[in-house]
Amino acid sequence: MTLVTIETSTSAAAVQPFPSRVAPLARRDARTEPRLVRGIIITLALTFLTVFVVLPLALVFLEAFSKGVGFYLKALADPEALAAIWLTLVTAAISVSLNLVFGVAAAWAIAKFEFRGKTLLITLIDLPFSVSPVISGLVFVLLFGAQGFFGPWLMAHGIHVLFALPAIVLATAFVTFPFVARELIPLMQEQGSQEEEAAISLGASGWRTFLLVTLPNVKWGLLYGVLLCNARAMGEFGAVSVVSGHIRGETNTMPLLVEILYNEYQLVGAFAIASLLAFLALVTLIVKTILEGHLDEGQPASDD
């Protein structure tokens, strides 16, 4: 039993996009490098992170405010910007909800039951992570486009899927598909089913058992998955770009508007929208760090 737990947790940690559980400091002892080597390694590491991560991030905010707060707010209050913000919120709300329901269902089926083909199912759930965003959009163009499988039928019935909200939601749901499930599956596997079995044998219904026993146990993991899912949903560019059609004020999400404004040299506008997205990323990281604290607390103490 213990063996299995360790195996699943390491393999999950190895491929998670955000697997960091903040590390305890290494114990100080003789097994370290000379001072000079330490200094060089730290300098190289920090320089690398500063050049590649800190500078671009700082630049987004500086460019956004380069002409003052007035310009910044004006850029955000632009009707096109507001439409993009609204579309992004709606898209994320729908696709995250869909993947939340799916993620919980998948985790329940996979963690609480034994069946053949489980490994294959988990691999299939992870599939969207290894598909280029452009291809994630392309598949929906092939289904719903004018030359697509369902395109002519949809057109005959006046239903707009491609270059409209439905395709944007589908493409977003595609790329964010694994987030909730892959966060919940290892967590629920680790926790086993004894508590749920006790509840059921005491006469609770399945639904009640889930709400009152399972949900409280996995709530931090669930929030963690939803948080990452939402961040990706709001920031998705490639997949949405392929299916959106870039209709101004209608089918541009925030990342797409960043591209359009940037290509039109409306730099303050582009970086103003970009700064909102960067702010979202920072908030996501902060909440994520807090949730990781809760997740570590919730886990049984282990000596590894």
């Binding site: 996009p17 630049l59 560019f237 797409l256 960043v258 960067a278 990323a281």
Partner: peptide
């Protein structure tokens, strides 16, 4: 991971 790719691109 967290920064939308379009933002990273323009930055």
């Amino acid at each position: 991971f967290a920064l939308p790719t379009a933002v990273a691109g323009v930055a």
